[in-house]
Amino acid sequence: MIHARDVHKRFAAVEVLRGVSLDVGKGEVVAIIGPSGSGKSTFLRCLNHLETINRGRIDIAGETLVSAGKDAVCRYAPEADIRRICRRMGMVFQHFNLFPHLTVLQNIIEAPITVKGLRRAEIVPVAEGLLRKVGLLDKQASYPSRLSGGQKQRVAIARALAMDPDIMLFDEPTSALDPELTGEVLRTIRELAEEHMTMLVVTHEMAFAREVASRVVFMDGGEIIEARPARELFSSPEHARTRAFLENML
């Protein structure tokens, strides 16, 4: 579903991604871990075109988002194609990014109506189903400011799912939450994993990564140091940097 090859990203003179390659298959759940500043968020943001890459190639669900020409300059698909390709991915941010002027229900149905042109009557039952799934049906008329962090993040997940994506990207979905609220969000993500949603999750929750991810990717200094099945990576990390990081985390 995700096919990234030799992705390079520079901010001014700083090379933040230095040749990242990763494949994520259908139904796979991949966790990305690594120290702060290692480029985890940047990589995720490159996948859905929130950042543009300087070199490399990205394909999403069989369609080419960006590829390198023979002169190694990368070429993006036309704008309309980019939007269509990126719409196959939902994204959940650390700070939720809910729309504060809209109620929970309005947050969820906004994009399906505005972008997909669905009628209200079509999407409201879907939205209600998603809210029931994340356990927030009774909050549908509330504004986001009335919700706890964990509830906000579950609304954000429901909002992304309402666009019926094939892939979900999570960028530290629990890092802005009080510890006692992370459980409810992780439970929601775990349920998605059980439904075989393809997911790429940047997280600092090692226990979660070990339990839910089929593969864990350790990034450091803009590179993937190792990417292996969760159990293997946690029990016997190959690289000294991975080992040092994991020891620090526990």
Binding site: C86, N97, F99
Partner: peptide, 18 residues
């Protein structure tokens, strides 16, 4: 308005005008 609002809208597929 926070940049996150634009990004939240963008990843849902809204155009700049929308």
């Amino acid at each position: 308005i926070d940049r996150g609002q634009y990004e939240g809208a963008r990843v849902l597929g809204l155009s700049y005008a929308q």
